[in-house]
Protein backbone atom coordinates (compact mmCIF):
# COMPACT_ATOMS: atom_id res chain seq x y z
CA UNK A 1 0.00 0.00 0.00
CA UNK A 2 2.73 2.47 0.89
CA UNK A 3 4.49 1.84 -2.38
CA UNK A 4 1.30 2.67 -4.29
CA UNK A 5 0.80 5.67 -2.05
CA UNK A 6 4.30 6.82 -2.85
CA UNK A 7 3.79 6.40 -6.60
CA UNK A 8 0.44 8.18 -6.55
CA UNK A 9 1.87 10.92 -4.47
CA UNK A 10 4.88 11.47 -6.75
CA UNK A 11 2.64 11.27 -9.76
CA UNK A 12 0.44 14.04 -8.34
CA UNK A 13 3.41 16.04 -7.14
CA UNK A 14 4.46 16.27 -10.77
CA UNK A 15 0.96 17.22 -11.93
CA UNK A 16 0.32 20.90 -12.46
CA UNK A 17 -3.06 20.81 -10.71
CA UNK A 18 -1.43 20.36 -7.33
CA UNK A 19 0.70 23.40 -8.03
CA UNK A 20 -2.27 25.44 -9.15
CA UNK A 21 -4.13 24.45 -5.99
CA UNK A 22 -1.09 25.32 -3.88
CA UNK A 23 -0.54 28.63 -5.67
CA UNK A 24 -4.21 29.52 -5.32
CA UNK A 25 -4.07 29.24 -1.52
CA UNK A 26 -0.72 30.98 -1.42
CA UNK A 27 -2.05 33.91 -3.41
CA UNK A 28 -5.34 34.05 -1.51
CA UNK A 29 -3.63 34.18 1.87
CA UNK A 30 -1.08 36.75 0.74
CA UNK A 31 -3.77 39.00 -0.71
CA UNK A 32 -5.92 38.64 2.40
CA UNK A 33 -3.04 39.48 4.70
CA UNK A 34 -1.86 42.28 2.45
CA UNK A 35 -5.27 43.94 2.45
CA UNK A 36 -5.87 43.40 6.11
CA UNK A 37 -2.98 42.88 8.45
CA UNK A 38 -5.24 41.52 11.17
CA UNK A 39 -4.52 37.80 11.39
CA UNK A 40 -7.71 36.86 13.20
CA UNK A 41 -9.90 38.63 10.62
CA UNK A 42 -8.02 36.87 7.85
CA UNK A 43 -8.63 33.56 9.58
CA UNK A 44 -12.38 34.18 9.63
CA UNK A 45 -12.40 35.01 5.93
CA UNK A 46 -10.28 31.98 5.17
CA UNK A 47 -12.64 29.83 7.16
CA UNK A 48 -15.43 30.60 4.69
CA UNK A 49 -13.16 29.77 1.78
CA UNK A 50 -11.82 26.59 3.32
CA UNK A 51 -15.28 25.33 4.21
CA UNK A 52 -16.54 25.69 0.65
CA UNK A 53 -13.50 25.15 -1.54
CA UNK A 54 -11.71 22.34 0.22
CA UNK A 55 -14.66 19.93 -0.04
CA UNK A 56 -15.28 20.96 -3.65
CA UNK A 57 -11.69 20.47 -4.75
CA UNK A 58 -11.44 17.25 -2.73
CA UNK A 59 -14.49 15.76 -4.42
CA UNK A 60 -13.66 16.82 -7.97
CA UNK A 61 -10.01 15.92 -7.69
CA UNK A 62 -10.76 12.55 -6.12
CA UNK A 63 -13.21 11.55 -8.84
CA UNK A 64 -10.97 12.91 -11.57
CA UNK A 65 -7.92 11.10 -10.32
CA UNK A 66 -9.74 7.80 -10.05
CA UNK A 67 -11.06 7.92 -13.60
CA UNK A 68 -7.79 9.20 -15.04
CA UNK A 69 -5.71 6.50 -13.46
CA UNK A 70 -8.05 3.68 -14.43
CA UNK A 71 -5.58 2.28 -16.95
CA UNK A 72 -2.79 2.33 -14.44
CA UNK A 73 -5.10 0.64 -11.96
CA UNK A 74 -5.87 -2.12 -14.43
CA UNK A 75 -2.18 -2.61 -15.00
CA UNK A 76 -1.55 -2.80 -11.28
CA UNK A 77 -4.32 -5.33 -10.80
CA UNK A 78 -2.56 -7.67 -13.18
CA UNK A 79 0.28 -7.73 -10.65
CA UNK A 80 0.29 -9.76 -7.45
CA UNK A 81 -0.80 -6.83 -5.29
CA UNK A 82 -3.71 -6.72 -2.91
CA UNK A 83 -6.62 -4.77 -4.40
CA UNK A 84 -7.36 -2.88 -1.20
CA UNK A 85 -3.82 -1.62 -1.06
CA UNK A 86 -4.07 -0.39 -4.65
CA UNK A 87 -7.17 1.71 -4.00
CA UNK A 88 -6.31 2.80 -0.49
CA UNK A 89 -2.83 3.69 -1.66
CA UNK A 90 -4.23 5.82 -4.46
CA UNK A 91 -6.74 7.44 -2.11
CA UNK A 92 -4.13 8.36 0.47
CA UNK A 93 -1.86 9.60 -2.28
CA UNK A 94 -4.49 12.05 -3.53
CA UNK A 95 -5.60 13.13 -0.06
CA UNK A 96 -2.05 13.67 1.16
CA UNK A 97 -1.00 15.69 -1.87
CA UNK A 98 -4.09 17.93 -1.58
CA UNK A 99 -3.52 18.34 2.14
CA UNK A 100 0.08 19.33 1.61
CA UNK A 101 -0.91 21.93 -0.97
CA UNK A 102 -3.43 23.33 1.51
CA UNK A 103 -1.04 23.17 4.43
CA UNK A 104 1.79 25.04 2.74
CA UNK A 105 -0.45 27.31 0.70
CA UNK A 106 -2.01 28.69 3.86
CA UNK A 107 0.87 28.12 6.21
CA UNK A 108 3.68 29.98 4.42
CA UNK A 109 1.96 33.39 4.15
CA UNK A 110 0.68 33.30 7.71
CA UNK A 111 4.07 32.27 9.04
CA UNK A 112 5.62 35.16 7.13
CA UNK A 113 3.13 37.61 8.61
CA UNK A 114 4.15 36.67 12.12
CA UNK A 115 1.69 33.97 13.02
CA UNK A 116 3.90 32.41 15.66
CA UNK A 117 4.20 35.62 17.63
CA UNK A 118 0.45 36.21 17.65
CA UNK A 119 -2.25 34.86 19.92
CA UNK A 120 -4.21 33.24 17.13
CA UNK A 121 -1.80 30.37 16.44
CA UNK A 122 -4.21 27.88 17.93
CA UNK A 123 -7.13 29.15 15.82
CA UNK A 124 -5.01 28.85 12.71
CA UNK A 125 -3.93 25.34 13.56
CA UNK A 126 -7.56 24.37 14.07
CA UNK A 127 -8.35 25.85 10.66
CA UNK A 128 -5.56 23.87 9.02
CA UNK A 129 -6.45 20.65 10.79
CA UNK A 130 -10.13 20.91 9.87
CA UNK A 131 -9.08 21.74 6.30
CA UNK A 132 -6.97 18.59 6.17
CA UNK A 133 -9.79 16.55 7.66
CA UNK A 134 -12.23 17.91 5.09
CA UNK A 135 -9.81 16.96 2.31
CA UNK A 136 -9.58 13.41 3.60
CA UNK A 137 -13.35 13.12 4.08
CA UNK A 138 -14.34 14.45 0.70
CA UNK A 139 -11.66 12.63 -1.27
CA UNK A 140 -12.83 9.42 0.39
CA UNK A 141 -16.45 10.18 -0.47
CA UNK A 142 -15.42 10.91 -4.06
CA UNK A 143 -13.55 7.63 -4.24
CA UNK A 144 -16.62 5.82 -3.01
CA UNK A 145 -18.72 7.42 -5.72
CA UNK A 146 -16.17 6.63 -8.42
CA UNK A 147 -15.83 3.03 -7.27
CA UNK A 148 -19.59 2.55 -7.53
CA UNK A 149 -20.00 4.24 -10.92
CA UNK A 150 -18.18 3.05 -14.00
CA UNK A 151 -19.75 5.84 -16.03
CA UNK A 152 -17.52 8.91 -15.74
CA UNK A 153 -20.26 11.46 -16.39
CA UNK A 154 -22.52 9.90 -13.80
CA UNK A 155 -19.65 9.77 -11.33
CA UNK A 156 -18.85 13.43 -11.78
CA UNK A 157 -22.53 14.34 -11.53
CA UNK A 158 -22.99 12.48 -8.27
CA UNK A 159 -19.80 13.95 -6.85
CA UNK A 160 -20.86 17.53 -7.55
CA UNK A 161 -24.34 16.80 -6.28
CA UNK A 162 -22.87 15.41 -3.07
CA UNK A 163 -20.84 18.55 -2.55
CA UNK A 164 -23.82 20.78 -3.33
CA UNK A 165 -25.97 18.80 -0.93
CA UNK A 166 -23.57 18.92 1.98
CA UNK A 167 -22.41 22.49 1.43
CA UNK A 168 -25.74 24.19 0.74
CA UNK A 169 -28.88 22.08 0.50
CA UNK A 170 -28.37 20.27 3.80
CA UNK A 171 -28.29 23.58 5.69
CA UNK A 172 -31.39 24.71 3.85
CA UNK A 173 -33.35 21.60 4.75
CA UNK A 174 -32.03 21.82 8.26
CA UNK A 175 -33.15 25.42 8.63
CA UNK A 176 -36.60 24.58 7.28
CA UNK A 177 -36.86 21.72 9.77
CA UNK A 178 -35.84 24.04 12.60
CA UNK A 179 -38.40 26.66 11.65
CA UNK A 180 -41.17 24.12 11.16
CA UNK A 181 -40.60 22.41 14.48
CA UNK A 182 -39.83 25.54 16.44
CA UNK A 183 -42.48 24.70 19.01
CA UNK A 184 -40.49 21.67 20.12
CA UNK A 185 -37.25 21.60 22.08
CA UNK A 186 -34.64 21.62 19.35
CA UNK A 187 -31.29 21.95 21.13
CA UNK A 188 -30.27 18.32 20.85
CA UNK A 189 -31.77 17.95 17.40
CA UNK A 190 -29.79 20.89 16.06
CA UNK A 191 -26.58 19.69 17.64
CA UNK A 192 -27.00 16.22 16.14
CA UNK A 193 -27.87 17.80 12.79
CA UNK A 194 -24.58 19.66 12.93
CA UNK A 195 -22.62 16.52 13.68
CA UNK A 196 -24.07 14.61 10.73
CA UNK A 197 -22.68 16.94 8.08
CA UNK A 198 -18.89 17.17 7.85
CA UNK A 199 -18.95 20.74 6.54
CA UNK A 200 -21.18 21.94 9.37
CA UNK A 201 -19.03 19.98 11.75
CA UNK A 202 -15.89 21.69 10.53
CA UNK A 203 -17.62 25.08 10.72
CA UNK A 204 -18.73 24.39 14.28
CA UNK A 205 -15.25 23.31 15.24
CA UNK A 206 -13.72 26.53 13.94
CA UNK A 207 -16.42 28.77 15.40
CA UNK A 208 -15.94 27.05 18.75
CA UNK A 209 -12.38 28.26 18.82
CA UNK A 210 -13.24 31.76 17.65
CA UNK A 211 -14.91 34.16 20.02
CA UNK A 212 -18.36 33.85 18.50
CA UNK A 213 -18.94 30.68 20.47
CA UNK A 214 -20.40 32.81 23.27
CA UNK A 215 -23.13 33.89 20.91
CA UNK A 216 -24.06 30.27 20.39
CA UNK A 217 -23.97 29.50 24.08
CA UNK A 218 -26.44 32.34 24.61
CA UNK A 219 -29.23 30.18 23.19
CA UNK A 220 -29.70 27.79 26.06
CA UNK A 221 -28.28 25.43 28.62
CA UNK A 222 -27.67 22.54 26.24
CA UNK A 223 -25.81 24.78 23.82
CA UNK A 224 -23.94 26.37 26.67
CA UNK A 225 -22.63 23.06 27.92
CA UNK A 226 -21.74 22.05 24.38
CA UNK A 227 -20.16 25.22 23.08
CA UNK A 228 -18.68 26.66 26.24
CA UNK A 229 -16.74 23.64 27.37
CA UNK A 230 -14.27 21.23 25.87
CA UNK A 231 -17.05 18.71 25.47
CA UNK A 232 -18.19 20.22 22.18
CA UNK A 233 -14.67 20.37 20.87
CA UNK A 234 -13.92 16.76 21.69
CA UNK A 235 -17.20 15.44 20.31
CA UNK A 236 -16.79 17.40 17.06
CA UNK A 237 -13.28 16.13 16.66
CA UNK A 238 -14.29 12.52 17.25
CA UNK A 239 -17.07 12.91 14.70
CA UNK A 240 -14.59 14.22 12.13
CA UNK A 241 -12.43 11.15 12.67
CA UNK A 242 -15.47 8.90 12.27
CA UNK A 243 -16.30 10.78 9.08
CA UNK A 244 -12.90 9.85 7.69
CA UNK A 245 -12.98 6.27 8.90
CA UNK A 246 -16.39 5.26 7.53
CA UNK A 247 -15.79 6.11 3.82
CA UNK A 248 -12.29 4.67 3.97
CA UNK A 249 -13.73 1.47 5.41
CA UNK A 250 -16.18 1.35 2.53
CA UNK A 251 -13.38 1.82 -0.01
CA UNK A 252 -11.65 -1.11 1.63
CA UNK A 253 -14.72 -3.37 1.58
CA UNK A 254 -15.90 -2.46 -1.92
CA UNK A 255 -12.50 -2.79 -3.52
CA UNK A 256 -12.14 -6.21 -1.92
CA UNK A 257 -15.30 -7.55 -3.50
CA UNK A 258 -15.68 -5.52 -6.66
CA UNK A 259 -15.55 -7.26 -9.98
CA UNK A 260 -13.52 -5.36 -12.57
Amino acid sequence: MFKILKYSFYDLARSRWSYIYFLFYLLLSFVLLFLNNDLSKAIITLMNVVLILVPLIGTIFGVMYYYNSQEFTTLLMAQPIKRQSIFLGQYFGVACSLSISLFFGLGIPFAMYGLFQSAVVLNFIILLVTGVFLTFIFTALAYNIALSNLNKIKGFGYAILLWLFLAVIYDGLFLIALVMFQEYPLDNFSLIGMLLNPIDLARTLIILKLDISALLGYTGAVFKSFFDTNKGFIISFLMLIIWVLLPVLRIYLVSKKKDF
Binding site: M47, N48, L51, I52, A167, V168, I169, D171, G172, F174, L175, L178, V179, Q182, L186, D187, F189, S190, L191, G193, M194, D200, R203, T204, I207, I212, L215, L216, Y218, T219, G220, F223
Partner: peptide, 21 residues
Protein backbone atom coordinates in the same frame (compact mmCIF):
# COMPACT_ATOMS: atom_id res chain seq x y z
CA UNK B 1 -35.03 37.43 12.10
CA UNK B 2 -34.98 33.64 11.92
CA UNK B 3 -32.66 33.31 14.89
CA UNK B 4 -35.02 35.53 16.80
CA UNK B 5 -37.90 33.16 16.07
CA UNK B 6 -35.93 29.91 16.31
CA UNK B 7 -32.90 30.50 18.50
CA UNK B 8 -31.45 27.08 17.67
CA UNK B 9 -30.88 28.25 14.09
CA UNK B 10 -27.80 29.98 15.49
CA UNK B 11 -25.85 26.78 14.81
CA UNK B 12 -25.98 27.70 11.11
CA UNK B 13 -24.01 30.89 11.74
CA UNK B 14 -21.60 31.69 8.90
CA UNK B 15 -22.85 28.88 6.72
CA UNK B 16 -22.93 29.37 2.95
CA UNK B 17 -26.66 28.78 2.76
CA UNK B 18 -27.30 31.57 5.24
CA UNK B 19 -25.19 33.97 3.18
CA UNK B 20 -27.18 33.08 0.07
CA UNK B 21 -30.49 33.55 1.89
Amino acid sequence: YLVNRTPEAIVLLRSLFIDIV
